[in-house]
Lab assay of single mutants.
Amino acid sequence: TTVHVNGVTYHFPNPEEAKKFVDRVVKEAGLTVEVKGNQWDVE
């Protein structure tokens, strides 16, 4: 699973890890998340 955060790419072994990361980032920074298949874009 690939997560893009403001142009930076993070790779995770599974969607659960990616979701935990995204949830944390979104809570801390108040960002928006767009999910496209296995790819997350966070802005």
Rank of each mutant, 00 (worst) to 15 (best):
T1F: 14
T1A: 07
T2H: 09
V3C: 13
V3S: 00
V3D: 00
V3I: 07
V3F: 02
H4T: 14
H4R: 15
H4I: 15
V5F: 14
N6K: 04
G7P: 00
V8C: 15
V8Q: 07
T9Y: 11
T9F: 08
T9E: 07
T9S: 08
T9R: 08
Y10T: 01
Y10C: 03
Y10R: 01
H11N: 04
H11V: 07
F12N: 00
F12S: 00
F12T: 00
F12K: 00
F12D: 00
P13N: 12
P13S: 13
P13L: 12
P13I: 10
P13C: 14
P13E: 12
N14D: 08
N14Y: 02
P15Q: 11
P15A: 13
P15D: 12
P15I: 13
P15L: 12
E16C: 11
E16A: 09
E16L: 06
E17W: 02
E17P: 00
A18W: 02
K19D: 03
K19G: 03
K19L: 08
K19T: 04
K19R: 13
K20Y: 05
K20T: 05
K20F: 04
F21L: 01
V22N: 02
V22K: 05
D23V: 03
R24P: 01
R24F: 11
R24T: 09
R24E: 07
V25A: 04
V25K: 03
V25G: 02
V26W: 12
V26R: 12
V26P: 03
K27P: 03
K27Y: 09
K27D: 05
E28K: 07
E28H: 07
A29W: 14
A29K: 06
G30N: 08
T32K: 08
T32H: 11
T32F: 03
T32R: 08
E34Q: 08
E34P: 12
V35R: 03
V35F: 11
V35M: 08
V35Q: 05
V35H: 09
K36C: 15
K36D: 14
G37K: 05
G37E: 12
G37R: 03
G37C: 14
N38Y: 04
N38L: 05
N38H: 06
N38S: 06
Q39R: 12
Q39Y: 13
Q39T: 08
W40V: 08
W40Q: 07
W40E: 08
W40A: 08
D41G: 09
D41F: 15
D41Q: 13
V42Q: 10
V42M: 07
V42G: 09
E43V: 15
E43N: 12
E43K: 13
